[in-house]
Design a protein around this nucleic acid. Sequence first.
RNA 1: GGUCCGGUAGCUCAGUUGAAUAGAGCAGCUGCCUUCUAAGCAGCAGGUCAUUGGUUUGAAUCCAAUCCGGAUCACCA
Length: 591
Amino acid sequence: MRVIAQIKEMLALVLDEALHYKTAPEALVINSTKPEFEGDYTLVLFSLAKPLRLAPEKLGEQLGELLVQRFPAQMARYTVIKGFLNLTLTDTYWLQFLDEQATRNSLQETWLHGKKVMVEYSSPNTNKPLHLGHLRNIFLGWSVAEILKNCGAEVIKTCVVNDRGIHICKSMIAWQLFANGATPLSTDTKGDHFVGDYYVKFNDELKRQIEQLVASGRTKQEAEKEAPIMKATQQMLLDWEAGKPEVLSLWNTMNGWVYEGFEQTYRQIGADFQKTYYESNTYLLGKKFVSEGLAQGVFFTKEDGSTWIDLTAEGLDQKLVLRGDGTSVYITQDLGLAQEKYNEFAYDQSIYVIADEQNYHMKVLQLILEKLQKPYAKGIFHLSYGMVELPSGRMKSREGTVVDADDIVAEMIAVARRKTEELGKVKDFTAEELESLYRMLALGALKFFLLRVDPKKKMIFNPEESIDFQGFTGPFVQYTHARICSLLKKEAPRSGPLPAISFLPAERELLLQIAHYPVVLEQAVSEQNPSVLAIYAFTLAKSFNSFYNQHSVMQAESAEKKQLRLILAQQTARLIDAAMGNLGIAVPQRM
RNA sequence: GGUCCGGUAGCUCAGUUGAAUAGAGCAGCUGCCUUCUAAGCAGCAGGUCAUUGGUUUGAAUCCAAUCCGGAUCACCA
């Protein structure tokens, strides 16, 4: 039941009946009443006062009176303060709301029923391990997919693996040069880290060779081109494209190591995909778009044979879609892949979780598909997110300032262990239960930290300060859930309707938070923004803790009060679980 | 240089389809565990919302200009 929607309908009705003013209920703005004023919800009167030609205060009085008379079962009373009409709903209404909430067997919505959505996320290169930036991407993608699912959509999670190209060859060359046949197994190293180490070795060696060449009189640019290791890498890329067996074999082997490593990380953090695309399979797909676009007059050819699209009319530039030598560029591949995905899944919407440095690229991609009149072009949505930066600026692999994904997860688990041991509340847990709890808390803290910020904004991570377990954090919300579970284990609420009873302020505040969930879920899905759910989960937990501190549940003033509080606690736990579940964060029964 | 994004408390962030005295958390300071989990609660302190001008009954929010920071504009991916 959506309380605000009901109030809007009541308002629209009295506006129409008594004041002959027709408005769509959705157009009305209802806010939660600020805590310092009496009331549950507030209508801001200014925008209505104008078309109705009434002073806001007068309009407020009229509307308040009309609402209370017309809907005595729902509207208890009202106050008008300046241009604000504060409405208080009846206890009967709220009791009925709670009954309905408690008897609902699912919190799933059906808003997006019948919609098919692809969510592409993670999409790593295979030359180095995942880092904190990938984690933001992965948690965002997973969460958005989960939110869509919980709104009724069919979701296909997909990953595009960039498994080919010059960067992969760099790791391969370095391995040939320096590894002496070492493998992840022989060195007891996780596969993606193993390959990443050779990528670092490549850069070290390249730097050394460049310095040498510069010392012997070359310019820096010449040196970069002439360095033997760079030349060997370029040759390897050509060999790869020519299908040279020994290169392909090494490539397969090294990528295999990386996939094993990624798989381990994905399993650890709870990421999954229904479909994985490999660029080595798809990078040639876009080429057929070029002839199509030329035929439609969308593309044009330059004298050197290269193919372009002119987007200057759209305020962008001319963009290359095929090189003079007939080979694809990045955007060509993406055109092909969009088509490939559509052929396979016929999506209504295709969400790309990609960092904001690619805003321009994604704009161009969508524009080209629109110009080619592809039916799926308008369904493409770039979920653009800001980079995770350090206090000193961007993470740079060359300067070794990258925060490794596996490291940070391990570190969080260690912190979770230390804090849990310090508090000593779960001494009766088995070893397995403890491991599971540490992991739950660690990932809760990490995911919450990365998801609580608006995706569009870049965020700063300070490695000097470990991620908090107190305040606006995952563990705070998890703790509140565990607290409630412990309560409910002592005594579960009875089923059946609540007796007539009134609400104390803290109970009412918690109730209002409980009623707020659908509004937040709707916002999260319409904005593709999980952070609103993180903020909600925190606010709800805070309301509960405040309530819990003021009123005893087990020693309530009466049996009725106890029943009411048990229901409030139960529904709070349920919504914490739901909100956190949308973020991919599990909540414990005890901690 | 063109385009886009951002600048809110010491720090990290909410609030930006205009609306009540700009909110949280962390850090700092006070209190609260013989009673349901103190990873908690209650409180204090902390703000020229980058600057200037404009629109409006009303501006952190809209407009313009300026300053600062970032991204992007590759026959790289």
